[in-house]
Design a protein around this nucleic acid. Structure first.
Lengths: 137, 137
DNA sequence: ATTTTTGATGCAACGGAAGTGCATTTATTA
DNA sequence: TAATAAATGCACTTCCGTTGCATCAAAAAT
C-alpha cells in the first residue's frame, strides 16, 4: 500500500484514495485495461475522474497506452524503470483473439526495422494477435 | 477503367459506379484513407454506402484495414497478389507525425518474433511512427 | 489558525466514428 | 416482362473519448 503511494509521489502524482485504488486494480489485473473496465470495477466513481486519472498516469509515466487494434485504448502499468518513449524499450503487445485480453510481453522488444530513405522513425507499435497462453493451454 | 472493373469482378464484387469511383479514388491517393476522407471526397453519396463499400472491399480482399494508432480505421488497396491474412505477407505501416498520413511500406515485412511458450501468433500489426519521406525532405 | 490558492472530483453535455434495420431503387436472371 | 437478389439511401443508435464548468478537498501562505 505504502509502495503505491511512494510510486505515485515519485512520479509527481498526488496519491489520492481513488488513484491508489485504480493503481491497485491495474496491478492486480495483469492485463491491459480499458477505461470501461475501470468504470465497471468502480461503478460509484465518475467516469471523468477515472478518465483523467488514466491520462494523468500516462503523462507521468505510470502507465502506457496500448493500441491493440480494437479501437479501444488500453492501459497497462509501466514496469519500474520503463521508458516507453525510448525506442529500445518498446515491447510488443499480444492480443488474444479468444479471450480478447491484451497483455504486455515486456521481454519481447520490437526489432529494429530498416526504413526506406527519407523515413525517420520516432516510435513503433507492434501488436501480435493470436491465442494467449491461458487459452491455448 | 476496365482494369478496375475486372479487378472487382475477379474478387466477386459487382462493379457499380460508386465502387469504381471509390477504387479509383484510393488508387490515386497512394496513402491509406479513412471513411471520413471518402465521405469528404464524395459528399453527395451516403455514408452508409461508402462504409459498406469499404467493408465489402475488405471482405473480398480488395483493401486491407490499417490501424495506425489514431483510433480511426484506415484502408489501403491490396497490391495485386497480396494475401493480408498470411503471416509472411504482413508489411508494416508508417504513420507520419507531421502530415498525419499513413502509408503501406509493402517492401518492409514484419520480422518473425519468438513468443513465450503457449502463445500462438495468428496475425501481427506493426506501425512505425515518425517523419515520412515527403515531410523530411 | 484562517485565508488563499491549487488541485481533484463530479455533473452534464458534445462530437466523432462505427454500426444496424428497414425501405427503396437498381440490376440480374428466370 | 416478372421475379429475385443485390446495392443504395435514410434514420437512428451506441460507444468511446473529450471538454467546460461548478464544487469540494487539500496544501501553501499569511
Amino acid at each position: 500500500m505504502k509502495e503505491i503511494e511512494k510510486r505515485l509521489n515519485d512520479n509527481g502524482v498526488r496519491p489520492t484514495a481513488m488513484r491508489i485504488l485504480i493503481y491497485k486494480y491495474m496491478a492486480e489485473k495483469e492485463v491491459a485495461v480499458a477505461l470501461t473496465d475501470i468504470e465497471n470495477a468502480f461503478a460509484k466513481a465518475d467516469r471523468t475522474t477515472l478518465y483523467r486519472t488514466l491520462k494523468t498516469f500516462e503523462e507521468k509515466g505510470i502507465v502506457h497506452q496500448i493500441d491493440d487494434g480494437t479501437h479501444i485504448s488500453k492501459y497497462a502499468l509501466c514496469e519500474p524503470g520503463c521508458n516507453c518513449e525510448l525506442e529500445q524499450d518498446l515491447h510488443l503487445h499480444f492480443h488474444c483473439n479468444n479471450c480478447e485480453e491484451t497483455v504486455c510481453l515486456t521481454e519481447q522488444k520490437i526489432p529494429h526495422i530498416n526504413l526506406p530513405d527519407g523515413y525517420i522513425a520516432e516510435d513503433a507499435n507492434l501488436i501480435v494477435k493470436g491465442i494467449c497462453e491461458k487459452c491455448s493451454g
